[in-house]
Amino acid sequence: MAAEIQIANLVKAYANGTKALKGVNLEIEKGQCFALLGPNGAGKSTMVGILTTLVETDAGSFSIAGIQPQKDAASLQKVIGVASQENELDPVETAENLLVFQGRLFGMDKALARKRASELIHTFRLSDEREKKAECLSGGNKRRLHCALALMHRPRVLFLDEPTVGMDPHARAKFWEVITQLNREQGVTVFLTTQYLEEAEKHASSMALLINGQIKYAGSISCFKNLVNPAGSLSLDESYLAFADSMKADLSIS
């Protein structure tokens, strides 16, 4: 089966000399919930930035759903949904207006955009907030609205960059309920970056460990845990720390 996301020898260096990615190769199959893990500064956000067309790559290539950004960026943007670390919301617009406008940008007519916005408002339990301006929403509700915006156009690949930062446990549980449902029932491929390893362990089926711009492990979570501790008694969190300790030299990231 062809991979949903194919990444070949991705290289990125910033103007200040920082080498964020040093030749990354990855394949993620359709319908997977994939977690990209690594310490701060490892290059995770750069990788998400490149895959979502926000950041240009220096070398290498990638394709998502068979679409290469160099050939057809607009088509690629139609198949991906992105919820990045920051809440990118127009503060003076209401939650509903933001969703409808997002739908319109992706080619929906007004009636369809309103219908889809209502669905997502219900799904993310934002009914009491639909008429509130984004700037008046709580941190957790902003995150939920942000994720709802990413799903407005029914993407087949969803990028979640630290998606649950700032959410309370209840909101976090509800958020994962929605994402898991999308992943399992609708086959949406999820590309997740997170520092909450218990979330990755619970919801992701495969993972990669990015350290200092290089992939140090790619495969299933259970294999990773077995690799670190064949006895199999460690959690992902503990396995990650043990693995990181064994690679201390690599982790001394500037």
Binding site: T52, T53, L54, A74, S75, Q77, K78, I80, V82, S84, E86, N87, E88, L89, D90, P91, Q102, L105, F106, G107, L149
Partner: peptide
């Protein structure tokens, strides 16, 4: 300016609009 300040411009940038 206000879109860049709020970060919303990045969201617009991720849309298929040229």
């Amino acid at each position: 300016q206000s879109d860049m300040q709020s970060g919303y411009f990045k969201r617009l940038y991720l849309s298929p609009a040229p």
